[in-house]
């Protein structure tokens, strides 16, 4: 598109009340900060590019900025997996601080992605993923054995495998019926997926622990970024910070004040393993960390883990 118009795409629909406002905040901030140099034309709900097409679409120049969930791209860019690893830290505040634009983890990700021609402007780290089940609660790793759990990405899938279950891939629109018909026994997800698909009406138990997390990030191509007017670049960076600060704050607020009470009110029992119980999970998922380190390379992996621990 000519003029200052840029194409922005995401697969997220406006019904994601926790994440979508962050995207709107990004777009508003970018437009305001650029002093009229930047007008963002948003195609949401996958209307231009579906979840699987966002990254190739960005790289082919179909979109200039995309909002993408890390689970879709962390197989391609393993460095993103650091923020997704189960039990990488058990303090959400720490995970959240680690990825602040300008902090070591954020810079490490962008250094790594620069080699692939991609840049993250900013992102929202989601709250932890829990294990949600219908028939019986998961209190120990052994309880996962033989369960078919829906997953959305590679690290989630490996987490399920490490716990002795079978990961099942399916679109989030199909999950409700699959749970109802016992095609799957549960799912691994953050609370946003549960509420936006009304799954609290069918799952009975949630095991609260750090079984993973995603980040929802704004990406652009690095060469495209370099070609922009300095004012536009500043506006994009500022918008990325807005996404991180205000978008994440909004998401956390929705999760704690709206979604969690809603899930509890629906009668979902939250299981919170303690002490030795949690330690057993931590031990069981060790292979997930090992696999990820192997994919990313030991040095970068160590750097990433350290920057998260120190955050």
């Amino acid at each position: 598109k000519g003029g200052g118009k840029r194409t922005v795409a995401t697969y997220l629909p406006s019904s994601y009340g926790d994440l979508y406002p962050g995207i709107e905040m990004f777009n508003k901030a970018a437009a305001e900060r650029s002093g009229g140099r930047l007008a963002l034309d948003l195609y949401d709900s996958g209307s231009l590019l579906g979840a699987e097409q966002l990254l190739p679409g960005l790289l082919s120049g179909v979109a200039d900025v995309i909002f993408q969930t890390s689970s879709y791209v962390s197989s391609t860019y393993p460095v993103l997996g650091a923020m997704e690893l189960p039990f990488v830290t058990e303090d959400y505040g720490k995970l959240r601080r680690a990825i602040e634009p300008g902090q070591p983890q954020f810079d490490l990700v962008n250094e790594n992605l620069a080699r692939k021609g991609v840049r993250i402007l900013g992102g929202m780290p989601t709250t932890f993923e829990y294990l949600w089940t219908v028939d019986k609660p998961i209190r120990r790793p052994e309880d996962v054995r033989g369960l078919r759990l829906r997953v959305a990405g590679e690290i989630e899938g490996e987490t399920v495998k490490a716990l002795g279950g079978a990961p099942v891939t399916m679109g989030s629109a199909e999950v409700y019926q699959a749970l109802e018909k016992n095609t799957i026994d549960g799912l691994v997800s953050y609370i946003g997926t549960v509420v936006s698909r009304d799954l609290q009406k069918i799952v009975k138990y949630g095991t609260a622990g750090h079984f993973g997390a995603y980040t929802v990030d704004a990406y652009c191509r690095s060469d495209w970024y370099e070609q922009q007017h300095p004012a536009v670049r500043r506006a994009l960076d500022a918008a990325g910070k807005t996404l991180y600060h205000e978008g994440t704050a909004h998401m956390v607020k929705v999760h704690t004040e709206e979604y969690l009470p809603k899930v509890k009110a629906a009668g979902v029992e939250l299981v919170e393993p303690e002490g030795a119980g949690m330690e057993a999970f931590r031990k069981a998922i060790a292979p997930v960390h090992a696999d990820w380190k192997r994919r990313l390379g030991a040095r970068t992996a160590a750097q990433a883990l350290e920057s998260i621990r120190n955050a």
């Binding site: 590019l49 699987e52 097409q53 190739p56 120049g61 179909v62 399916m170 679109g171």
Partner: peptide, 18 residues
């Protein structure tokens, strides 16, 4: 001309629709 880059993406998206 850059518009045609959407062609293979659209075809892959639609014809790999489970």
């Amino acid at each position: 001309l850059s518009g045609v880059e959407l062609v293979p993406l659209s075809l892959v998206a639609q014809l790999q629709n489970y």
